[in-house]
Amino acid sequence: MQTVLVVEDDHSIALLLKAYLEHAGFQVLVAADGEEALSKFPDINPALVLLDLMLPGKDGWTVLDEVRRQSSCPVIIVTARGAVEDRLQGFKQGADDYVPKPFDPDEVVARVEAVLRRPAHLIEPELVRYGTLVVNFTSRVVTVKGKTIPLAPRHWELLAFLVRHPNQVLTRDQLLDHVWGMDYDGGDRAVDVSVKRIRQSLQEWPANEGEIVTIRGKGYLLRVL
């Protein structure tokens, strides 16, 4: 049985996550603050950490940094801080996914399961390779056939989100929420324009290795073998 460490100072939210995760077959341990999380982490050796950012004492950013120094354990940030700047910072510091509050607990469980299914393409904790496409989440560098591909910050974040969810249909609304942020009030045309530019940047990536596919009426999918 895989263990999930829930780091959450709101007791009701912690109990909600614990109940849903246990129902899905996980063993769940809860830490109410950053100090407790870091003291438990080495002994628990969890399969995944669900991490709130706004914690008493050591905040979630500090916990994430320390976890990354110790381990490649997947971390999903679950927080009320849904601004795009916070999401970018989370991914830059090594988070594997980012779920804004309020959330659907079933979706959180689904994301936990998806992240734990992901290791097949991981070469090292923050490096993903699909054929000649290599995405380094630590340095935020993308290369194709060894050549660095320059990307605007928003395009990097969009590509990174697609890469973290291979062969999964992502709606335009999902992409807007996770890349542009919940407070973005523009239209979903921004997603289409950004995908077009990413495709242009990745034009040397062979289609038989992977491609960003348009799913008509829904959104996009990063198809990889």
Rank of each mutant, 00 (worst) to 15 (best):
I13L: 11
P166C: 05
D43Q: 15
C73Q: 05
Q93I: 06
D104T: 05
V195I: 15
D188M: 13
N167R: 09
K218N: 07
H121N: 11
T171V: 05
P56N: 07
F161Q: 10
D97K: 00
G131N: 00
F26W: 09
E8G: 04
D183I: 01
E22K: 15
G181D: 11
V49R: 06
L176N: 09
R81A: 13
A83K: 12
E66T: 14
Q168L: 14
H11I: 12
V30F: 08
I13M: 07
L133M: 01
R129I: 01
K92V: 10
I215R: 13
V135Q: 00
H155T: 04
G217D: 07
V6Y: 02
A14S: 05
Q203L: 09
W205N: 06
Y220Q: 12
V169L: 12
D173G: 07
H11L: 12
H23W: 13
L50R: 06
I77S: 09
P105F: 10
V224W: 10
R172F: 03
G219E: 06
L175V: 10
P74L: 02
N45G: 12
D106K: 15
K218I: 07
P153R: 01
F103K: 05
R154L: 13
E124Y: 09
T214K: 15
S72M: 02
L5W: 05
H11C: 04
D183H: 08
T214A: 15
V179Y: 04
L221N: 13
G57Y: 05
T132H: 01
L176W: 05
P125G: 01
F26M: 09
G210M: 02
I149Y: 06
A190K: 14
Q93N: 15
S139N: 11
D10H: 14
W180H: 08
G94W: 10
C73A: 08
Y130S: 01
M1L: 12
Q200C: 03
V109S: 04
L15W: 06
A207N: 08
G210W: 01
P119W: 08
P74V: 00
F26K: 06
I44P: 04
E85P: 02
I13S: 08
E8R: 05
V144C: 02
A120G: 06
L225P: 14
D173I: 10
Q200W: 04
A152N: 08
T148V: 14
V63H: 09
T3Y: 05
R69I: 00
G25P: 03
S71F: 02
R154G: 08
A37L: 08
Y220D: 11
Q168W: 10
T62A: 15
K92N: 13
Q200M: 10
F26G: 03
I77F: 11
L55C: 07
V4P: 07
D177S: 14
G60V: 07
H23T: 15
I77H: 09
P100K: 06
A190V: 15
H23E: 15
D183Y: 04
K40S: 15
G82C: 11
E36Q: 15
D65R: 15
K196Y: 11
E36P: 01
V75P: 04
H155F: 06
L133S: 00
Q27E: 12
D188W: 12
L64C: 13
L127S: 07
I76C: 02
V224N: 09
L16M: 10
L170Y: 01
G146C: 03
V108Y: 02
A31R: 05
G25A: 07
Q2I: 07
E107R: 12
E209H: 04
D173Q: 14
